[in-house]
Write a protein that binds this DNA or RNA. Sequence first.
DNA 1: ATCGGTCAAGAACGATCGGTCAAGAATTCG
DNA 2: CGAATTCTTGACCGATCGTTCTTGACCGAT
Lengths: 132, 132
Amino acid sequence: MGRNRSFIEAEVVAQCAEIFRSTGYEGTSIDDLVQATGLHRGSLYKAFGSKRGLFVLALRQSAGPAMPTHDSTDLLLVALMELAPRDPEIRSIAFGILSGVAPRHTPQSLGERLLERAREPRANEATTKDSA
Amino acid sequence: MGRNRSFIEAEVVAQCAEIFRSTGYEGTSIDDLVQATGLHRGSLYKAFGSKRGLFVLALRQSAGPAMPTHDSTDLLLVALMELAPRDPEIRSIAFGILSGVAPRHTPQSLGERLLERAREPRANEATTKDSA
DNA sequence: ATCGGTCAAGAACGATCGGTCAAGAATTCG
DNA sequence: CGAATTCTTGACCGATCGTTCTTGACCGAT
């Protein structure tokens, strides 16, 4: 039970992380997360409290012990660009990830990934509804 | 006169650029720009058409012939992170700036500035966002 | 069968978003 | 001077934002 639940939780957080890293923090709406996870608004809030809380979990989880992937690096970039300057806790988490035991990220590697990400066209997210 | 007008215009664009580079694109509301410029909503839209149009002008203007400053680099970072993946024109402008005649920006210099910016606390603008 | 408690579900909420427009002030022209 | 025209202004719009609350289905214990 508990194990299964936390496993599912981790999966949901991972799905949200994917949305956040792709469309940014401010660019992601709760509806986007609802759609991506299949959960419902109330459930998301019951489980995670707020959009920001969900992002914090996603950021922490994506920075596990493994080597950074493109996805986890993107999420870190989003945190650094959009949240860190105005949110001390997230700034602290982000720089904690950066100063991990091994020098996994460097300014150069971050800059390179930033440029790669900027070049990747994003599927035109529905600003106007034509889902038929 | 035309010259005076365009001078004022450039000043307004510069003020908006400062807001965009500081709080990001999605993080900046029209009201923020209204407050920063002292102009009124209608005037802004009459002169610049849209928030995006204003950002495009700001990005182009900030990437003049001079050496990049922290401010102009920040605006470029915002363009690359928030707009470039979903907006081909802005992506094109941004990469045009990057491939200027002299190698003014490198992945490493971008990454370094990204980290500096993330460390600079931003005056907590009260948008009733983190009261949870 | 009936209660009490739990939880998913999504309708509803106030605030705020980007964008528009009609009415008043200012200016130009006959 | 008065009519015509341009500019200024901020109230207003529908949509969407993040968040909360009511609803009702479900389940074990009585």
